[in-house]
Design a protein around this nucleic acid. Structure first.
Lengths: 229, 229
DNA sequence: GAAACCCAGATCGTATACAATCTGTGCTAG
DNA sequence: CTAGCACAGATTGTATACGATCTGGGTTTC
């Protein structure tokens, strides 16, 4: 079981993309060790490029690097978790407003497809995949708003949100957000900035309200199993 | 002139700090080439650590890396320049509000010292230094607001703002912002969130209004001269 | 004379080797 | 039996070496 074929990825960006996706759909969980050798084995590259990837992810807040100890998937504290959603609450409503002003039929179609995939993922009981798509939806809105700087920031915040959700989500009600996304889609379709802004604001509040920002949780799994299994 | 003593800096973070400072006070200008060998010589480290530093700065938007061509100090486009200040307008007024709510006498004293240094720099005709301090002032406000995530973002935005100012500033009136900072300080001293928010909003609008977001400018200087001369 | 081509120098990209640091295990002393 | 220490294995940090790619100048050809 040691050398299944490595994942096709040569560049550091590929590795970042793969690992980030794995974190987004909760195949890789907060606290997991990302050993340079192991990652290098899995992707079939040398440690040099692995280190580039890990440091890049560290800059995005997805990974924390401890000197002489290695890289770990970040475990945001309760304070950091709050901060992430506070910043999102500052950035995203206004961004949704701008997106609603600019959204073209092509944009709407793309978001529709996004939501359809989310539904399919939920139907197939792939909660992780649905979560990843849900995050991408938010980033896509920033793209539609034609705000690349904000898009990059929201990308980071969505990544960290995945970590926060992995740590602090209370499962009592399954994720019903696709409803919120559908409502947002309507606002975009009708180019209604006011409603888009309000809906986004409410959506983010909803998300935070479903978190339990008191206790922490702990889990550990093999990185190799998470990525290749 | 080839081997003046290298700047004392061993770690990648030191190099990032030095180079970032140099950019902030306009000793290093947009478009300047940051050759790995040259930077390594200047700081007395190997290319390995230089690359770490340059990639880190690239993630912050201060440097742009072109594959097989090298690293250059970023030259934000007019669109990026607008975006930077649009994001700042979203983040900073609210942050100033939070800071005004939390500011302690110690915080106020620290900001006072900051402003005093700014004045001294302006009096000594060190416009670059004054600019750097002015940016640090904004970051300090985020720290007082106890928002580390926002602090990091504003740090990035201030960095890029330095580049924008280097490219698009129209010099017709010298930078009189220390006045705006003084007004903000008063709002913090009296714990007046409303006024702090308004002042910050106006301050940012002022800054943008003093930019000429139409033409670009070009200049080139030796990195070594900029850092060591 | 101008354009296309080719080659040399320089610069970056990646891999590998070695040094520094940490973790955990087993031993020893109290 | 427990606490402290020391050493071995593992992992990361840094430097260096080599290969790939780009830039610019000089030559050739039309």
């Amino acid at each position: 079981m040691k050398d299944v074929l490595p994942i096709a990825a040569s560049s550091a960006e590929d590795i970042v993309a793969h690992l980030t996706e794995a974190v987004h759909d909760h195949r890789v969980l907060p606290g997991m060790k990302l050993s340079e050798d192991e990652v290098g084995d899995i992707f079939g590259v040398s440690r040099t490029v692995v280190r580039q990837a890990l440091r890049a992810m560290a800059h995005g807040g997805l990974v924390s690097i401890e000197r002489n100890r290695g890289a770990f998937v970040a475990k945001p504290s309760v304070k950091e978790a709050r901060e992430v959603f506070e910043v999102r609450a500052l950035l995203e409503p206004q961004t949704a407003r701008a997106a609603a002003e600019r959204a073209t039929p092509a944009d709407v179609a793309l978001l529709e497809d996004h939501i359809a995939q989310e539904h399919a993922a939920l139907a197939a009981d792939k909660a992780g995949l649905a979560l990843k798509l849900s995050g991408a939806f938010h980033v896509e809105i920033a793209r539609i708003a034609d705000q690349r700087t904000i898009e990059a920031f929201i990308g980071q915040l969505v990544s960290r949100s995945s970590l926060v959700i992995a740590l602090y989500w209370q499962r009592r009600n399954a994720l019903c957000e696709s409803h919120a996304h559908h409502a947002l889609l309507d606002a975009f379709r009708h180019n209604d900035p006011d409603q888009a802004e309000d809906l986004m604001k409410g959506h983010l509040l909803d998300l935070v309200s479903q978190l339990n920002l008191r206790e922490t949780r702990d889990e550990t799994t093999s990185l190799r199993d998470a990525l290749l299994g």
